[in-house]
Design a protein around this nucleic acid. Structure first.
Lengths: 252, 252
DNA sequence: CGCACATTGCGGTCGGCACCGAAGTGTCGG
DNA sequence: CCGACACTTCGGTGCCGACCGCAATGTGCG
């Protein structure tokens, strides 16, 4: 009745299946994909260091993953940022990683999901703050008339004064690096504050103990001092950021 | 806050991911798995011929797939039957095969699902009838007092008469092969009729045009003559078998 | 009991691929 | 304009695995 040309269809599926599986069958590439499960965009060098391979090796792997539709890439200056191509790919990788060979393993998927949510909350991007916290800072600066969004980011006169007040001194502006620059956030899809001011603010936050690195990655946690500081300086409610508004509460 | 020991967790996921992906990254193994997507159990030799490799090669691949939890095996006489380990594995393989590299391909999943349903309906098993049709035949024979289920299958006196009436002659019983034997159906999980009577009935159904092979596999289609014959001989409603009762209608 | 057949185990061969180091290209920042 | 840095490209090396043929094992059937 039906079932004609099953052979051709199977052949096409076969090459698609082996191609995708082959991409994930390598330990280094699998390490890349699992690291990218946090939803962030990583640079090629970061992934190389994370996996313990030479940058040239990582470059080849990334090119292959991008060509295979597993990753999406974006060039930003001298960096090559890569992220998972989409939620379907992320789901597929989680499913495969969760698949147990003989006996069941503890629910690893749960921990990955939790980790992903934590990382979307606050992290560093290159040398400045990103994630929901970074976006909230940019929003608060704009809302209080300290930062202009027209033609890229630019601090107002009041904004420069605020910056000097917070940091104790203004960041050096000797080079060509602008004081403020917008940087697209990879998880929020909205700009956060980059440039020398963004870097100085991030360094200051780390030095003051407002935020602290979690583990060896770029994830950040906000301590009590940070909650107080962000609330006092910019009226940001850090606790409210930890659960995104569109995602009430689904601990799986 | 959270996120501790992410490294260990990632390592564990990494080996699980590469292990599973490595199993599916080979063309021959992928061909096996795609063939098994029909839900049937195949013998090692059948899969070897289907993929065009030596039996020894197929044997190694199957052992690896079984050890990796992708396939489940069952030994029946001198045959080694393998099938997908479970619906989760089948879903995973379909998802991976449907994943498009650069541009999207037509919905192959639909066709596979359709094919699978058709194959679960009627097929050959070794040399006799299986699938829902095979199970229905065994049920009808039992219900009409032609077949006893105690201590394996055994035809009653009326059953032997019915058999001779249908076939025109009784199947040879010279060897040690029993006239009737139960054979567990892989998709229905219930026994159907094997033995020399099952083989003779299958051969007769093919010769009379009651059923016909679909493509090169073991799938069978039931023609008009078959519908009439099964209804007249055993009061089986073939049309009702085509949609399983517990699965109303979900064309995906 | 003996033949036929399905399957498995074992060496041996060969191709593919992951890896590195070194050299080249483009960008950032002073 | 120049140095530092991120990344890419290009040989070259070594290992892993897919494949086969042959021999051995176990089962079904006459």
């Amino acid at each position: 009745m039906c079932g004609a040309d099953d052979g051709r269809m199977t052949d096409a599926s076969q090459i698609a299946l082996t191609r995708l599986a082959g991409l994930l069958a390598d330990g280094t590439r699998a390490t890349f994909c699992l690291a990218l499960l946090d939803g962030r965009a990583w640079t090629a060098g970061e992934l190389a260091r994370h996996a313990g391979v030479a940058p040239s090796t990582a470059s080849e792997h990334l090119s292959r993953l991008v060509a295979g539709g597993v990753l999406a890439e974006e060039h930003q200056g001298r960096h090559r940022y890569v992220r998972l191509a989409g939620p379907a790919v992320a789901q597929l990788i989680e499913d495969m990683a969760a698949h147990d060979p003989p006996a069941a393993a503890p629910p690893a998927t749960l921990r990955v999901a939790g980790s992903r949510r934590a990382l979307a909350f606050a992290r560093t991007c290159y040398d400045h703050l990103a994630g929901r916290l970074g976006v909230a800072i940019a929003d608060a600066l704009t809302g209080r008339g300290l930062l202009e969004r027209e033609a890229g980011f630019a601090f107002t006169e009041a904004g420069v004064a605020w910056l000097g007040d917070v940091l104790g001194e203004l960041p050096a502006t000797t080079g060509r690096r602008p004081l403020a620059r917008p940087c697209l956030d990879w998880t929020e899809r909205r700009p956060h504050l980059a440039g020398s001011a963004g870097a100085a603010l991030c360094r200051h936050a780390l030095e003051q103990g407002w935020v602290a690195r979690i583990g060896s990655g770029r994830a950040l946690g906000v301590g009590p001092a940070g909650g107080e500081a962000f609330s006092r300086l910019l009226d940001i409610d850090v606790a409210a950021l930890k659960l995104p508004p569109d995602q009430p509460d689904n601990p799986v």
